[in-house]
Write a protein that binds this DNA or RNA. Structure first.
Length: 394
DNA sequence: TCTGGGGTCCTAGGACCC
DNA sequence: TCTGGGGTCCTAGGACCC
């Protein structure tokens, strides 16, 4: 009655967006490529920097102007999400040749459960190498792979030898691995928790290990304390085993300059509502909860949400609620830097039986919106929007 | 010339009920 | 003449991730 040995791969594409640009523009090869905003773009940040750009200290989430200061000779380009999605799909398909259980985590990474595939593909290490090779051969891109007996450790392993790396954490050595890992590399410890740990004199995973569960929970809260206690001991952290109960859709925009007038905010809000609502229709989702988010000039961020009694079926309703929430929350004296809107607690079946109560008028609008959606599907280049959104364009 | 956009999960505090 | 103690639901804010 031996337990079966689980094997997980975590595959992570190297500097994905920047690598795709180098692939599609051979003249960029070997050069610092910075995907995100262009140097002139106000309030933009770096999405991905190629390894050649990272040498200069450029990294993701860095303001573009700062990246430009560090690396003025860099090749700055806007992202081309469609192209990245296309390649991502191709690569995920390769992964699926090696396992029926591929869990895509984002556009550029996935877990591949290769438990029990030895008879088909050989030892796990060989499978990993074969996948790397096939991705390289079929797309020209490199992928770093981590191999371990749990998803959590496979995830940490894939980060060890980037780019084009492979790293294996043998079963039974997980705790030793954790105890040599720098604190800031621990998945789940971000800037704030790291600061907080340092503040309490904890600078290594070994330091965490030496604290009792009680102490950790007292200092960092029940949950974070338990997580810290478990993670350095390589105990189950459940980081990737929870399946999410709810789903949400949102859109937000940062204005080039702070906005002070309500009319401009409402126009932006309508545009955002439009985008979110059609994404909801596209996935046949239903939601009753509207959220509005405001970031003021000083970066303080507030949000407000409201749950309605029935599903939001047309954009007008969505926008009216969002507008009301904006009015309720918005402090008119302050400049607005960012405005966002979202639909939360999305379900994919109609649970609300009271549906039929909505009137003919709404049925018509709903039909129009579905028609627009199908039109947009056929002709992705045309965008049909409310007249107001065109007002300021000429 | 500070700090994107799209997500998920956790938590503290208040409302409300027994 | 001084106010317990659960439980649950909701909201807003925050941490973290890619």
């Amino acid at each position: 009655m031996s337990e079966i040995q689980h094997w997980y791969l975590h595959a992570d594409l190297d500097a994905f967006f920047a690598s795709v640009e180098q692939l599609d523009h051979p003249e960029y090869k070997g050069k610092p490529v910075i995907v995100g905003g262009l140097p002139g773009d106000k309030r933009s940040v770096v999405s991905t920097a190629s390894y050649e750009a990272r040498v200069f200290g450029v990294h993701s989430a860095m303001p573009t102007y700062q990246a430009y200061k560090l690396c003025p000779q860099g090749i700055f380009v806007h992202g081309r999400m469609q192209r990245y999605a296309e390649l991502s799909y191709q690569i995920m398909s390769i992964f699926k040749e090696y396992s029926p259980d591929v869990e895509q985590m984002s556009i550029d990474e996935a877990f591949i459960d290769i438990t029990g595939t030895e008879k088909l593909f050989g030892p796990p290490e060989e499978t990993a190498m074969r996948i790397k090779q096939q991705v390289k051969q079929m797309t020209g891109l490199t992928v770093s792979i981590g191999l371990a007996a749990t998803k959590y450790h496979a995830k940490l392993a894939s980060d060890m030898k980037k780019p084009d790396g492979f790293y294996f954490i043998p079963p039974g050595t997980e705790q030793a691995f954790m105890l040599q890992l720098p604190l800031k590399k621990v998945f789940g410890i971000g800037t704030k928790t790291l600061e907080n740990l340092n503040y309490h004199g904890i600078h290594t995973t070994r330091d965490v290990y030496e604290k009792s569960l009680d102490t950790l929970q007292f200092l960092f809260g029940r949950n974070t304390g338990q997580f810290l206690y478990n993670t350095v001991r390589a105990l189950e952290t459940e980081t990737f085993s929870r399946e999410s109960k709810t789903h949400s859709l949102s859109a937000e925009t940062t204005f080039p300059c702070d906005v002070y007038d309500v009319y401009s905010l409402e126009t932006a809000l309508l545009d955002l509502c439009h985008g979110v609502f059609f994404r909801l229709l596209r996935e046949n989702g239903f939601s009753k909860t509207v959220m509005v988010k405001i970031r003021y000039e000083d970066f303080t961020t507030v949000s407000i949400q409201e749950k309605t009694s029935s599903n939001i079926l047309i954009i007008d309703t969505f926008y009216e609620i969002a507008k009301r929430l904006l009015e309720k929350k918005y402090d008119v004296k302050r400049g607005v830097r960012l405005l966002g809107v979202g639909l939360e607690n999305i379900l994919h079946e109609e649970k609300d039986v009271q549906q039929e109560l909505f009137e003919d008028e709404n049925k018509k609008k709903q039909a129009v919106e579905k028609a627009i959606l199908s039109l947009e599907k056929k002709h992705p280049d045309i965008k049909i929007k409310k007249a107001r959104l065109f007002e300021k364009q000429k």
